[in-house]
Design a protein around this nucleic acid. Structure first.
Length: 229
DNA sequence: GCGACAG
DNA sequence: ATCTTGTCGC
């Protein structure tokens, strides 16, 4: 974890920490063509007990070939509260990242970045903490207004709040619900959309995140108590 | 006050 | 998010 920053004890402290950390988010970083290794991150929770599995899947950015998969079992240390999602998922995701032999060039996470009430969603928190370029790709909006984008893959429309552009509502496949792309850290919104499209060749959800979701679910399922007799 | 509310 | 199989459609 980030030893420089005290971990918040409650929602009020967490909110204050977000407002402070948001200032370190940047919109520039490596050019898109310099990104060779993409990582998708996701967390699956057990309903039976209080365990969770965080997963990171690393893919070759050009071929989308899987290069590495790591998982980490943990327990939630913070409740789920809209707007404070990162305090729940950041600790297990960082622990999983530490299991990688080589850090990836870019992180894609299941949630928002700047498209957040205080402009500091999970993707921003993950990027600022790791100092790795990060993109947020969410399945649902948390804040903002938008027009329905066109029906085809690549069609998009801006996600805005009080005139401020927070992200892009991006159609990743024909006639499928769009996803919500926003900057996490060290990348432009345009590059974030390009990387998202490039890593989403077939399904609605980008391949790195989709595979991380599968890995975390598979792992949790395989570790559930198997009833005998 | 009411509704909305990433995963 | 979690529980949960098949089934309809491209």
């Amino acid at each position: 974890m980030n030893p420089q920053e005290p971990w918040p004890a409650d929602a009020e402290e967490a909110t204050a920490l977000q407002s402070r950390l948001r200032r370190s988010v940047t919109r520039t970083g490596p050019a898109a063509h310099e990104i060779q290794r993409l990582a998708g991150l996701d967390v699956t929770y057990s309903k039976n007990d209080d365990r969770l599995i965080a997963a990171v899947v690393v893919l070759d950015a050009a071929t989308l070939e899987v290069q590495d998969v790591v998982v980490h079992e943990d327990r939630p240390r913070f409740p789920y509260l809209p707007g404070l999602f990162s305090f729940r998922e950041l600790p297990p995701l960082l622990a999983a990242l530490e299991k990688l032999d080589h850090l990836p060039d870019l992180l894609m996470c299941d949630g928002h970045g700047l498209a957040h009430p205080r402009r500091f969603g999970l993707a921003c928190h993950l990027g600022v903490t790791t100092r790795i370029p990060t993109i947020g790709v969410a399945k649902q909006a948390l804040i903002g207004e938008y027009a329905e984008p066109g029906p085809r893959r690549g069609d998009r429309s801006p996600l805005t709040d009080k005139g401020e552009v927070l992200g892009t509502v991006l159609r990743t496949a024909d006639h499928v619900k769009p996803v919500f792309v926003s900057i996490g850290h060290m990348i432009s919104l345009e590059d974030a959309c390009q990387v998202t499209l490039n890593s989403t060749p077939r399904y609605r959800i980008s391949e790195p995140i989709r595979l991380a979701d599968q890995a975390s679910r598979r792992t949790l399922k395989s570790r559930q108590s198997h009833p005998t007799g």
